[in-house]
Simulated scan of single mutants.
Amino acid sequence: MNNSIQLSRAQESERAEFYKKTYMHVALAILAFMVVESLLLKYIPDELIMKMLGGRFIWLGILGLFWLGSYVSEKWTLSQDKNVQYAGLGFYVILESVIFLPLIFIATRYAGLEIIQQAGLITVALFAGLTAVVFMTNTDFSFLRTAITVGGFVALGLIVAGAIFGFNLGLWFSVGMVILASGAILYQTSKLKDTYSTDQYVGASLLLFSSIMLLFWYVLRILMSRK
């Protein structure tokens, strides 16, 4: 029997339980990412990681698979079957780990583990602050949707062009992406109640996890650019 209730129509206690489960799953996804990333760094040969960095078309292929995998993962997390939901979240964690592998490899080899820890702390602090803004002010950030959508397509176009033609997007692009990811977190957090039902906390956690990882990626790139 399906006892799912739209979050906006749920009782206060049910919403509190939904948010508790959602953010617990976000934390577990981050922990799983750290474990998988460590295993990849340990067992994937350095030469193969360097090929990912050097091959433009290989990188484009990985990005294409990532976008396809992201779509599939999101569909799975919205399934009524809990096993399928967790499979979607787990699959997405693995995808993120593969995408991050070259960046983490460079960071650990040339900037040190400390810079990853710094980027992680900054990311968590930003996410916590943005989340607090949504819950404490109860502001509807739906007005950010158009800007986030347009910004996302522009950013994707620049990333693809950079991969094809081999130019560096630079520091200001990373700053812009941090702003875009922050806006996405504000928008997604404020729209959770209108998008999800009380039993879809796994899907909600994937949504927030994806924005956190985008934020972490560009915070780390900014810190690395200073080295």
Score class of each variant (00 low, 15 high):
residue 1 M to Y: 07
residue 3 N to G: 13
residue 5 I to K: 14
residue 7 L to V: 07
residue 7 L to F: 07
residue 9 R to V: 02
residue 15 R to V: 01
residue 15 R to P: 03
residue 16 A to M: 13
residue 18 F to M: 09
residue 21 K to V: 03
residue 22 T to W: 06
residue 24 M to K: 15
residue 25 H to I: 00
residue 26 V to D: 00
residue 26 V to R: 00
residue 29 A to D: 04
residue 29 A to K: 02
residue 32 A to N: 01
residue 34 M to T: 14
residue 37 E to S: 12
residue 38 S to T: 09
residue 44 I to K: 04
residue 53 L to S: 09
residue 54 G to L: 07
residue 54 G to T: 13
residue 55 G to L: 02
residue 55 G to Q: 09
residue 57 F to A: 07
residue 57 F to P: 04
residue 59 W to P: 00
residue 60 L to C: 00
residue 64 G to S: 07
residue 65 L to R: 12
residue 65 L to S: 14
residue 67 W to G: 14
residue 74 E to F: 11
residue 74 E to K: 09
residue 78 L to Y: 06
residue 79 S to K: 13
residue 79 S to Q: 05
residue 81 D to H: 04
residue 88 G to V: 01
residue 92 Y to A: 08
residue 94 I to R: 10
residue 94 I to K: 10
residue 95 L to R: 09
residue 97 S to A: 15
residue 98 V to F: 04
residue 98 V to H: 09
residue 102 P to C: 08
residue 102 P to F: 06
residue 109 R to D: 11
residue 110 Y to S: 13
residue 111 A to W: 06
residue 119 A to N: 12
residue 121 L to K: 11
residue 123 T to V: 07
residue 125 A to T: 10
residue 126 L to P: 02
residue 127 F to S: 04
residue 134 V to R: 10
residue 135 F to D: 11
residue 136 M to C: 08
residue 136 M to T: 15
residue 136 M to Y: 10
residue 138 N to M: 01
residue 140 D to Y: 05
residue 145 R to N: 13
residue 149 T to R: 12
residue 155 A to H: 14
residue 155 A to I: 03
residue 158 L to Y: 13
residue 159 I to G: 06
residue 163 A to R: 11
residue 164 I to F: 12
residue 165 F to V: 02
residue 166 G to F: 08
residue 169 L to D: 10
residue 170 G to P: 08
residue 171 L to C: 05
residue 172 W to K: 03
residue 182 S to D: 02
residue 183 G to T: 03
residue 184 A to M: 04
residue 186 L to Q: 05
residue 187 Y to E: 15
residue 187 Y to D: 11
residue 190 S to H: 01
residue 190 S to F: 00
residue 191 K to R: 09
residue 193 K to V: 11
residue 194 D to E: 11
residue 198 T to I: 08
residue 199 D to L: 14
residue 200 Q to H: 01
residue 201 Y to P: 00
residue 202 V to E: 06
residue 210 S to I: 04
residue 215 L to T: 08
residue 215 L to V: 03
residue 215 L to P: 02
residue 217 W to S: 03
residue 219 V to G: 02
residue 220 L to H: 03
residue 223 L to Q: 10
residue 227 K to E: 09
